[in-house]
Design a protein around this nucleic acid. Structure first.
Length: 116
DNA sequence: CCGATGACCACCT
DNA sequence: CAGGTGGCCATCG
């Protein structure tokens, strides 16, 4: 189809672009590792937009994206459609999860923060 | 353009 | 350690 038609079909809004970048980053987080909303924001090219990242994840419905690997600062769990599920998923990946946080957070944080 | 919203964040009580 | 406060940011109406 023509370029004009293509653009008319689905014009890539600025909003979608931001969301795409955020989801792209989240998809790269390996199992057993986690990132904070702030980390994702920075990696997505929008340092300081941690809150905006939360908004994206809260709306995203794409499959194959490990949303549960994105937690709040200091290893606290943060939000999720169902917190008990988030805990279960993280625990299933070998993480030590307490009522409201991931233990040894700095050691499972991704990308590696030069441990030791 | 402005104000409201939210899966945040740092800081202070 | 539980709450409250002010600030930040992208989106949406």
């Amino acid at each position: 189809m023509t370029r004009a038609a293509k653009r008319a079909a689905h014009a890539p809004s600025a909003a979608d672009k931001f969301a795409r970048r955020v989801l792209a980053v989240v998809t790269r987080i390996p199992p057993g590792r986690v990132c904070t909303y702030g980390d994702v924001a920075a990696m997505a090219g929008a340092p300081g937009a941690a809150r905006a990242v939360g908004n994206v994840l809260a709306q995203a419905r794409l499959a194959g994206v490990p949303y549960h690997r994105v937690i709040a600062a200091a290893g606290r769990l943060g939000g999720y459609s169902d917190l008990s599920t988030k805990r279960a998923l993280l625990a299933a990946e070998g993480l030590d999860v307490t009522r409201a946080a991931v233990r040894r957070f700095e050691q499972v944080r991704w990308p590696g923060r030069r441990p030791r």
